[in-house]
């Protein structure tokens, strides 16, 4: 058994212990796993299934249904670009084109250096100062192409 498997086991056990007695514990448990690893490792599924007495198929179904759950590791920073209407009205489509070009990746992909993952999002609740993007847990407003480049450059300059 390698060390990362032990860690996964521990994380699952802790998450299950914390949420086992809650109503409908599966989403909170999956959230806890993803918060630790940045994605839901394949090997987590049988562990969660055993601990919560659910079928693996059920868990795969849930992971596949929700946009947030990832089955592949994410980059160091996850960029969510808002694609919804209020942001469309202020240039989100151009920003999206630019972001893909600047980072050289499409939605759902991670840059080869492992720095950035790009994801779409439909509204960040920042619609009065659009367009909006979210970088990790921070939301940014009125993101022009120049502002986007500045934000990316800042993140790139940090080792």
């Amino acid at each position: 058994m390698n060390s990362s498997a032990v860690t996964l086991q521990e994380v699952v056990e802790n998450a299950v212990a914390r949420h086992q007695h809650s109503l409908g514990p599966l989403l909170p448990v999956l959230h806890a796993i993803q918060e630790t690893f940045g994605f839901i490792p394949r090997d987590a599924v049988p562990l969660v299934a055993g601990a919560l007495n659910l079928s693996r198929a059920e868990i795969h179904g849930v992971i596949g249904f929700y946009h947030d759950y990832r089955t592949e590791p994410a980059g160091e920073h996850t960029l969510h670009l808002c694609r919804a209407e209020a942001c469309q009205a202020t240039g989100a489509a151009e920003l999206e084109l630019h972001a893909r070009e600047r980072l050289g990746i499409d939605f759902g992909e991670t840059t080869p250096d492992g720095r950035f993952t790009l994801e779409p999002v439909y509204c960040l609740g920042n619609c009065a100062c659009a367009p909006a993007i979210r970088i990790n847990d921070d939301t940014f407003a009125r993101v022009s192409i120049e502002k986007f480049d500045r934000l990316i450059a800042e993140l790139e300059s940090v080792e």
Binding site: S22, L23, G24, P25, L26, L27, P28, L30, H31, E58, G61, V62, F65, Y66, H67, D68, Y69, V121, Y122
Partner: peptide, 27 residues
């Protein structure tokens, strides 16, 4: 009172989908 976090699904704002999601299922 307990706080639950969604997982990125617009449809989970529909009340019955939301309830299924709270129960740990697909919404």
């Amino acid at each position: 009172l307990e706080l639950r976090i969604g997982a990125g699904a617009y449809i989970c704002g529909e009340e019955t989908s939301l309830l299924d999601s709270l129960e740990g299922k697909r919404g």
